[in-house]
């Protein structure tokens, strides 16, 4: 009997595997296949997805520049440097973040929800416990497969 599950990378994944082993499932009956997602596949990381460290993050940069301008001209404007600085960082931050979103839009839906495939080979008597352990450790999806005995 096979139990299939998909996971995202997390500590829970390893905890699930440890617990399966403690319940008597042997290591060679657990098959784990980490997937290459769109963003791990490419070495040309300059062109990749949201959250990648190599995006520019204009939000922080524009925020800083506008805040500096707000602080400087705040010394002559009525509301003073504090308010103008805050206005500056909000304006710059939002503007920059909007630009970031605009620049990476085309890659957004390439982010994988499932990052690891896990297959457990076990006796039928164990299968519901295996399933419970997998669900209990944040599996994205779980399915049991009973081979047809014709």
């Amino acid at each position: 009997m096979n139990v299939f599950a998909t996971f995202r990378h997390s500590m829970y994944l390893e905890m699930a595997i440890i617990e399966l082993e403690q319940r008597g499932i042997e290591q060679q009956n657990i098959l784990v296949i980490p997937l290459d997602n769109q963003y791990t596949k490419s070495h040309d990381i300059v062109l990749t997805h949201r959250g990648d460290p190599i995006g520019i993050q204009f939000g922080f940069i524009f925020g800083t520049v506008f805040m500096l301008l707000g602080v400087i001209y705040g010394f002559v404007f009525k509301w003073g440097p504090v308010l103008w600085g805050m206005i500056g960082i909000l304006t710059g931050g939002v503007l920059g973040y909007w630009l970031d979103l605009f620049l990476i839009k085309r890659n957004q839906n390439t982010i994988g929800l499932s990052e690891v495939i896990l297959i457990v080979d076990c006796h039928q008597s164990m299968s519901s416990e295996v399933e419970r352990i997998l669900w209990g450790h944040r599996a994205v999806g779980v399915a049991k497969l009973q081979p047809k005995t014709s």
Partner: peptide
């Protein structure tokens, strides 16, 4: 995981 849990693809 790749090093420790890919003994065989028996399933």
């Amino acid at each position: 995981l790749s090093e420790n849990y890919q003994h065989r693809a028996i399933q």
